[in-house]
Structures are given as structure tokens and as C-alpha cells.
Amino acid sequence: MTFKEIQELIKLVGKSNLTEVKLKKKDFEISIRTKKYRKNMQQVMSTTTPMVSMAAAPQVASAPPAAKAEVAQPSAPAVEVDSTANLIEIKSPIVGTFYRSSSPDKPAFAKVGDTVAVGDVVCIVEAMKLFNEIESEISGKIVKVMCEDASPVEYDQVLFLVDPKG
């Protein structure tokens, strides 16, 4: 990158509302901070107390009306214990299309017999072309895959049965 191009970058950041930008290329690194950055930092410093109280109740105070019901029970688990067989269900959090792998030529995220841990991706549910990677909230062994690859799924539809003792 030439000196002129770097000047152009700095000018662009100066004109924008961006406060801090870092750019890393093969042969150089540049970090640009604007006056706004310092102003923001001062604001953060001087509002430490309200920040803390905001953090304690992050979404409830400012959520739109439509989201309130959701927020009231934010940790409603997507898993439920099947009392008959002691299996746990992994359910779809959204209406969409169920995918077992990230693309047709890739292996499935989770197959019958696989052991999954908390945080492991088990599938993708696509909705309106947003691809949602579903993480397991439980650990155990996949006993059954309840949906066909690339098939439509409903909200709360069971996707996998997991044996927590597996």
C-alpha cells in the first residue's frame, strides 16, 4: 500500500463515524483512532455505575414489546427429558429447513452413535437464508436423528434424541 493510499484511508476514517479501525495486511499493520474514540472512552469512564446496572438486566429494559414474552423466560431450554426412555430431545428453536451438514459434500455434524458435548454444533436450521448453527446444550450420545436432511422443520420440532448417559 502506498503512502497516498494510507492517507486516503485515514481521511475516510476521519470523515466517518468509526472510532477505531485496525487493518492488518501481509506487509504492514495500521491502527487508526479518531477524536471520537477518546470521547467515547470518556463517556464510558464517566458512566461506569449505570453501565453496571445495565449489565445486570441487559435486554429486559430495552426490548421491543414483541420480544417481552421471550425475555421473560430467556433460558427456556430447547431440551426436554423424555421420561419413558430417559432420552433428551434437541428441538428446533425456529421454523426453517434442517441441514445435517454445512454443505452437501461435507460430513454430517452429528450421526447416530456420535457423542456430543455442550456447545458442539449438531445441525443447521436455515430460515430466510440465514443459516443458524444449532449447538447442543447437553452432552450425551445421539440415539436418533428425527428429521431428513434438507427437510422443513417447525418451531420446537424434535431434531435429535440424545442419551445423556451415553
Partner: peptide, 12 residues
């Protein structure tokens, strides 16, 4: 545009 979300429960 291609958007991929990583979900934790019902939260993005």
C-alpha cells in the same frame, strides 16, 4: 450476503 448465526439456546 450470506449470514451464519451461532445460537445458544434461543439467543443469537
Amino acid at each position: 450476503i450470506l449470514i451464519q448465526n451461532i445460537l445458544q439456546g434461543k439467543k443469537v
